[in-house]
Design a protein around this nucleic acid. Structure first.
Lengths: 213, 213
DNA sequence: GCCGATATCCCCCGGCCGGGGGAGGGGCGC
DNA sequence: GCGCCCCTCCCCCGGCCGGGGGATATCGGC
């Protein structure tokens, strides 16, 4: 499909990286690097002027960094998609970048074809991550209740209020029952979860997917 | 790059959907649909026999569903990447699918080019989601500490152990300090977080992005 | 040199919590 | 009808917790 090529802006403080990316992307007939920026401020400026479809954004840049630049770029009218590219995978940038609104997160160590695919992917509107980042994102989510203890509805309800930081008395008032009743429910929850106190109950309950925080 | 084409297996209980996908994917010179399966069991069987690079997997299928099939397929030696495709976006399948090990999650309402890009993306090893799914995944993550109280390193450490469900005495043993010291730190944490007790501290600390659960 | 922040330890005390019992009523399935 | 589970309430008691004080030592910066 000879559509109009995807217009790409490359933002990285290393001229070498910019050249490399340009080489890789311009080699594809459907991709076109329309500009390069050496810092975040310039990236925003050029985005406004050149209106690219995709911005390849480095995280670490002097002055305005890639995360801030991502926010700014996405606030422009008819914003481009932002593909954040970084060197190290174990900085916590992934979450920050995605929160800032980035459509994708890629490691620089990715091969040329991965880079090319990534640009095309975000260009059509999908989101993309390197697999470890996605797994990390999923891993730290509450488990889908596999082998979770079977709490009664009332017990789940009480656990939920415990997780809100309420005392037994407050929970009793909330549920319009006696404090003794709440104490019984809490005791059941503790026993079923194998928790020693309400704090452990909250953590275990959260990990078992029984409560939302 | 005329590499060997990406070999794709299509698994969906609707013959019409299978035909549609085949049409879309086979139109690309670098993609090749090597087989179709009408249910999860058949998908596993064909994966073992045909050894595709990518499996496009529907979630809802009779018998073995797409999620279970994904798990099984990924347990095969030298497994393919699995791209899960579904109709509705508000079922909680995304998390289940990714937990099962899927490399991507796409909506059927995606256009042909999105579908093609998605297959190519997972083929090169990246992970992919439709944007709303990613935003949902990020949304429910702990906030990146915007306006979070400034805890001292020691206080953060103590809070982390509190969040593990430890008593002050256990924390003291863990940190090799007196119980009194721990009590002081906990008191500071409670004050800074505005929590009444350790349970609230854990919840507030979690929401402030100060502790991982 | 002084001050602030941090980390460490100490005492008293009131309170909520959690463990161990027991007990009654209502709904559901066999 | 009988048993079982769930929800409800009750008593006693030991313990950890959290609030209120105060004290000492180290480090770093102005």
């Amino acid at each position: 499909m000879p559509d109009a090529p995807v217009r790409v802006l490359v933002a990285d403080d290393e001229p070498l990286v910019r050249s490399g990316l340009r080489l890789i992307l311009d080699a594809e007939p459907d991709l076109e690097v329309v500009g390069e920026a050496g810092d975040g401020a310039r990236a925003v400026e050029l985005t406004r002027a050149l209106r690219p479809d995709v911005v390849c954004m480095d995280v670490r840049m002097p002055g305005v960094d890639g995360l801030r630049a991502t926010e700014l770029v996405l606030r422009l009218p008819d914003p481009p998609r932002v593909l954040v590219v970084t060197t190290f995978e174990h900085d916590g940038y992934v979450l920050d970048a995605l929160t800032a609104g980035a459509s994708g997160f890629l490691l620089k160590r990715a091969g040329a074809d991965e880079m090319v695919q990534a640009v095309r992917t975000v260009a059509v509107g999908q989101s993309l991550l390197y697999p470890q980042a996605l797994r990390e994102l999923v891993r730290t989510r509450p488990r889908a209740a596999a082998g979770a203890p079977a709490l009664t509805p009332r017990e789940r309800e009480v656990l939920g209020l415990v997780a809100e930081g309420m005392t037994n008395a407050e929970i009793a008032a909330e549920l319009v029952v006696g404090v003794e009743t709440v104490r019984t429910h809490v005791a059941s929850v503790l026993a079923k979860l194998g928790a020693r106190d309400r704090t452990q109950a909250v953590v275990l309950g959260y990990r078992a997917g029984l409560v939302e925080l």
